[in-house]
Nucleic acid binder design. Structure first.
Length: 408
DNA sequence: TCTGGGGTCCTAGGACCC
DNA sequence: TCTGGGGTCCTAGGACCC
């Protein structure tokens, strides 16, 4: 892992940007189907909901009305959000709320193309070599602007606007940017004026802009932690900031308790990381209907072998071998179990993976029906590098890059 | 009408070694 | 005979994120 040195902008403060594409998948689809602009549209579900060409040359789109299955929304347009639809919501539930909303299948290849394009646009503007950009998935990045000329004067407003303009010019897509002294605050800030937002925040703004927000908005406070905080009478970030650090540590443990306190006060020293190696690669699938290990044994065997072959293919394509092979299954009651085994030698071979995962399967209860099966490879190494796990090669260390920009 | 697929990180206990 | 630490590896589960 290569960490960028925390840059200084002359005023002793870092200037970190968080850029988040607005309703990314849905916005890419609206570029392709502009006739859907302004309509409630959700992305998700399986193959079947491809728009259908009609004789008059127009397209017929699927709606949620007759959806049956186990898919979830990955992204909803802002018009759909106004109807209460949001990502991670089951499509069946969404159909009950908005039966006439348009349903489009996910097209990851297309989103990856736009992802590369917007990241390249940002790299053009920030211009350093290598650009101090941290990939946070397909639609988000952090950028360390501290070394940019003139940032100290306006705390990054000018360059952030230039980035937004360039992303729009190159992709036709809007994004929202927050610029603050650290990643934690920038992540919060980029969300404050969404969509098409640009929010500059300094430490002095925390009380007015951050403290009124629900604690749940902090990256790292999920549903469980938020519920526990609420039970303790803490809903807002400001209430969390008022809490005694020692008391938070007593309630949540040394590590998480201390972090909660620091986060609520807007403190975060993490640097923008421009390069990292994957730790694990996995494949999993949820069945259309729950399958029983005995009565559906043949079907499960086919799926299991397919997953191992896909995982082996991913490993080979990306140039890794895994020494730890893991199995994951989810029962009809949604309980999840995992088993793993560490091999003598790392592998990217489908048959070896299949055998190892099969051994894991023997260690797991198989009385209930299953809804999900998955396989995973961990302890990754590059073939030929005996003994080394995931530390980068010397040659790679010298040439840090942002994997997302160059992925194929 | 329940809840996708791809990840990361943390915790915790036991084995094993020094 | 009993009592110690520390360190690393392995495994399982869970919270969280995009």
């Amino acid at each position: 892992m290569v960490a960028a040195l925390p840059g200084q902008a002359g005023d002793g403060e870092r200037h970190i940007a968080h850029l988040d594409m607005d309703a990314f998948y849905a916005s890419v689809e609206l570029l392709r189907y502009p006739q859907l602009l302004g309509l409630p549209v959700v992305i998700g579900g399986g193959r079947r909901h491809q728009p259908e060409p009609l004789v008059d040359g127009s397209l017929r789109f699927s709606t949620l009305r007759h959806y049956a299955g186990r898919g979830v929304i990955t992204t909803a347009t802002y018009a759909a959000r106004a109807l209460g639809l949001h990502s991670a919501m089951g499509l069946m539930k969404a159909a009950a709320l908005a039966p006439d909303a348009v349903l489009l299948p996910t097209d990851f290849d297309e989103y990856r193309r736009y992802s590369r394009a917007f990241k390249a646009a940002v790299a053009e503007v920030v211009g350093t070599d290598p650009p101090v950009i941290e990939d946070r998935g397909i639609d988000e990045i952090y950028i360390d602007l501290s070394g940019q000329p003139g940032v100290a004067a306006d705390h990054g407003a000018t360059i952030a606007q230039a980035i937004k303009d360039r992303v729009l010019e190159r992709t036709g897509l809007n994004c929202s940017i927050g610029v603050t002294p650290n990643k934690l605050l920038s992540k919060l800030a980029s969300d404050l004026d969404k969509p098409d937002g640009l929010t500059i925040l300094r430490h002095a703004d925390i009380a007015a802009r951050i403290w009124p927000l629900p604690a749940r908005r902090i990256n790292g406070i999920g549903p469980k932690a938020a519920a526990r905080l609420e039970a303790l009478g803490i809903r807002s970030i400001g209430e969390l900031a008022s809490a005694d650090a020692a008391w938070l540590i007593a309630e949540f443990g040394q590590s998480y308790g201390a972090w909660l306190h620091a986060a609520a006060h807007g403190r975060d020293e993490r640097v923008v990381v421009t390069y990292s190696e994957p730790k694990s690669i996995s494949r999993e699938t949820t069945f259309e209907r729950d399958l029983h290990p005995r009565t559906d044994r043949a079907a499960l065997t086919v799926i299991f072998t397919r997953l191992c072959e896909k995982l082996a293919g991913d490993l080979q394509r990306k140039g890794y071998e895994g020494r730890t092979i893991g199995l994951k299954l989810r029962y009809d009651d949604f309980k999840t179990v995992t088993r793993d085994v560490t091999l003598e030698q790392p592998t990217a071979d489908a048959a070896i993976i299949r055998r190892a995962a099969g051994a894991c399967l023997k260690r797991v209860p198989l009385e209930r029906r299953l809804r999900l099966l998955g396989v995973r490879a961990g302890s990754l190494a590059r073939p030929g590098d005996a003994g080394r796990v995931t530390a980068p090669r010397a040659a790679e260390r010298d040439v840090p890059c942002m994997p997302g920009l160059f992925e194929t």
